[in-house]
Write a protein that binds this DNA or RNA. Sequence first.
DNA 1: TAGTGGTCTAGACCACGTG
DNA 2: ACGTGGTCTAGACCACTAT
Lengths: 291, 291
Amino acid sequence: MRICVEIRAMNASSPETSGSAAQSAGTATLPSGALAAPPSVQGAGGGSSFGNVSATFSPLYQQIKSLLMQSLEQGEWKPGDMIPSEVELAARFKVSQGTVRKAIDELAAEQLLMRRQGKGTFVSTHHEPRAQFRFLRLVPDDSERNYTENRILDCKRVRAPGEISRQLDLKCGEIVVQIRRLLSFAGVPTVLDEIWLPGALFRGLTAERLAEYKGPMYGLFESEFGTRMIRASEKIRALAADAASAPVLDVPVGTPLLSVERVAWTYGDRPVEVRRGLYVTAQHHYHNELV
Amino acid sequence: MRICVEIRAMNASSPETSGSAAQSAGTATLPSGALAAPPSVQGAGGGSSFGNVSATFSPLYQQIKSLLMQSLEQGEWKPGDMIPSEVELAARFKVSQGTVRKAIDELAAEQLLMRRQGKGTFVSTHHEPRAQFRFLRLVPDDSERNYTENRILDCKRVRAPGEISRQLDLKCGEIVVQIRRLLSFAGVPTVLDEIWLPGALFRGLTAERLAEYKGPMYGLFESEFGTRMIRASEKIRALAADAASAPVLDVPVGTPLLSVERVAWTYGDRPVEVRRGLYVTAQHHYHNELV
DNA sequence: TAGTGGTCTAGACCACGTG
DNA sequence: ACGTGGTCTAGACCACTAT
């Protein structure tokens, strides 16, 4: 099904330089076929030289950004893929390259795209080494960050506890995948995670699948389940190790631990993961940059 | 003393549109007087249509950014001030408005400047309400963030301990101001901070001065001591309250606390504060957004 | 109405990576 | 040599704010 996409709420006209015959861009309207995707363009119409409606104004580049985001979400370009060049996209959307550029700039700032000069613009992926520690802010006090030993303790499907279903926007009692896993650094148990994922999105996710997978967990989610984590929020507290966690982390009961509660979102601001971690901070710390 | 500033390592030429007589920008060289400030421009020279030296290439807008940063650092525009308009700056630096814009964009992203449509571009300040909680990431679990009770426990000048002098890039044994203060939320002691500042930069800083000052501490530093914190880095751990901190925070010895060690920088990547905080996270949490 | 930042265009050239 | 993103320019118009 192809739907006519109406971009361009209002628009600047072309430069009328002294004596030069620059072709007019005027108030064009993207005719169709630019994208086989449902439209999501807001903004009232308006001419280039008369009535302008200032309510619900959305810049062109924001509309382009939305369209690009849709293409990403719908998998027109997969993680790791190169997307069309700026010139191509400009032609597709019937806007200038500069406008496409500004849309891509924002998507790159949000880490959804990666620009590489001379090569192209690529869809980000959790598989590239750079992304390895994008969400794990725990770093060793002295050494470099190195690879991790990941032990899956548990993986089962359960009815979502109230708090979890609320955070995942699920109906009460819906099925979630519940994972427990232990991360060790240089043989030292350091991170005990408990993870909840919407069952509907992660059919076929088992402890075996998790255990045999080499690489970051978000990479697995992205490649095998088509769910890409693009943003997260964490709440951090200090907590004493209890009888359940202490033996797993190999610390005495009562040891102060970092409690890190994360919610992760995918496209469209949909929460798709709740993760509660307990971090041993004897040889590590949670790093944060304030700007 | 006025020094000739050599901007513009290499440069694009003007558009030679069909038949139009656009004036050439060519390979201009900022003659002088653009700014009464020491130059800091790197980048080798080069013509517009021959040999280009690719080593140490620095885009024009980065050079403009550096010059703007110098003006900020040297106080040509004070916190809260409006800086000259983009058009004015473009004229001053003999570049296009777009180039100035890109420089300002980056400075705004780094929170050094704030753009306000229709009004102008302003130097950020720690006094504006927005900046109040820019560096304090501890937020109440339930309620909104509200004002704070700030009690100065101590303020003295001491020889910097080894670790502190190292972090502040001071010579061993140099004098630092050491402050201890307690933050309470709704009457509940919550944050116990220990702060070290280079003594040379904070002459005249006393407990009285700190106590009587209403408003954020970084605001005081900015207004009264001309030192503006623009960036910080934190290391977070879980720690048990000890005999010294427990009574002040009104918690039992052994209570798990968040330990937050901050280093803050001013212009030129110079560290000017070390701060060690102990946070009670019974009713609060440290909030962090991952992107 | 004037001035500011914000958007958009069109075109030129540069730096980078690959053939 | 070619294609990609990156820089730079010049100019027009829009949105917002203050007067």
